[in-house]
């Protein structure tokens, strides 16, 4: 309402009668032509006052109905992500699943957080990795903790496997997209249960699939071609880690929001192990990295 009042005051001072368009309601004023007569300027002022009142009254009465067309300022939905994590890369190997993610948390293009752990165990048999909005990921973790707790309270010796958790996540993500209130994430879910390896992905609109190797975001462009070339069914742990590191190094070179501090997580029949953060050895002397703007206009 503060802005509304100042608009009116501004109008009261505006004696010239020059048309002054308010962004709040252009169409209403389009037909009012500018005139120097006092009557016209009064009419103009009144029209503007009306438009300011109508534009601000819903805010004042605080009863803005939640509709699909609600203005973005008073929305309670995620309309765009704030703090985001970049790619997650994961693959099946001989004994289970290996997953890698760096620890950056970007606020737009600002590297805001540098120790964001984006992989977490879920129950006894699953491992979840997330890219996208970090707060949404942490909310999803709360959902999963509750899910696992309620499942364990049956105390029937049964526990949710990766397939069940993946299906649950798919339903949650799809349900939220149906409400136009999405969790802004790409999730990777890996696990092993009863000797069966499982690796799947879910996107923020509920798109889901399983594969031998998956990657989110930039990883889809840069890591998956490498994985398609070099992935094998019987990859050893050492070779798996080497392959993931190769992918993460390419991402580090070409994805500006990637940082050189990453974790690799492993899940086997024995359970989840998430490595301590470490960095990759890099070499920035490639000719393509020297004077990268050479030839570009203005360089």
């Amino acid at each position: 309402m503060q802005r509304g009042r100042s608009d009116v005051e501004e109008l009261a001072e505006d004696e010239s009668g020059e048309e002054l368009l308010l962004s709040s309601d252009r169409s209403r004023q389009a037909h009012i032509t500018s005139s120097s007569s006092a009557e016209a300027s009064l009419r103009l002022a009144f029209a503007k006052f009306q438009s300011t009142v109508s534009a601000h009254s819903p805010m004042e009465s605080n009863q803005a109905k939640p509709s699909l067309l609600a203005s973005e300022s008073d929305s309670q939905r995620t309309l765009s992500p704030y703090v985001t994590g970049t790619s997650v890369v994961a693959l099946k190997y001989k004994d289970g699943i290996l997953m890698a993610a760096d620890m950056g948390g970007s606020y737009g293009s600002t590297l805001r957080y540098k120790s964001m752990s984006r992989m977490t165990p879920v129950g006894k048999h699953s491992l979840l990795g997330a890219s996208g909005e970090i707060s949404d990921f942490q909310e999803i973790c709360k959902y999963l903790d509750e899910l696992i707790l309620h499942d364990s309270m049956w105390d029937d010796g049964n526990s949710l496997g990766p397939k069940e958790v993946h299906n649950y996540l798919t339903r949650v993500m799809y349900n939220r997209r149906n409400k136009f209130d999405p969790f802004w994430n790409s999730l990777v879910l890996g696990g092993v249960k009863k000797g069966e390896k499982y690796l799947g992905m879910v996107s923020m609109i509920g798109l889901s699939f399983v594969d031998d190797h998956v990657a989110t975001g930039f990883g889809n462009h840069l890591a998956r071609p490498i994985l398609r070339d070099e992935w094998r069914e019987d990859l050893s742990f050492e070779d798996g880690v080497k392959l993931l590191e190769k992918c993460m190094r390419v991402l580090l070179y070409r994805d500006r929001s990637a940082v050189n501090k990453l974790q690799i997580a492993k899940i086997t029949e024995e359970g989840v192990t998430i490595s301590q953060p470490y960095s990759l050895k890099t070499f920035w002397g490639f000719t393509a990295f020297n004077n990268p703007t050479a030839g570009a206009e203005g360089s």
């Binding site: 939905r77 995620t78 309309l79 765009s80 997209r177 149906n178 136009f180 999405p182 996107s203 609109i205 798109l207």
Partner: peptide
């Protein structure tokens, strides 16, 4: 800025 789209093909 990316806007949310509930669909994909």
């Amino acid at each position: 800025m990316s806007r949310f789209s509930p669909y994909d093909n």
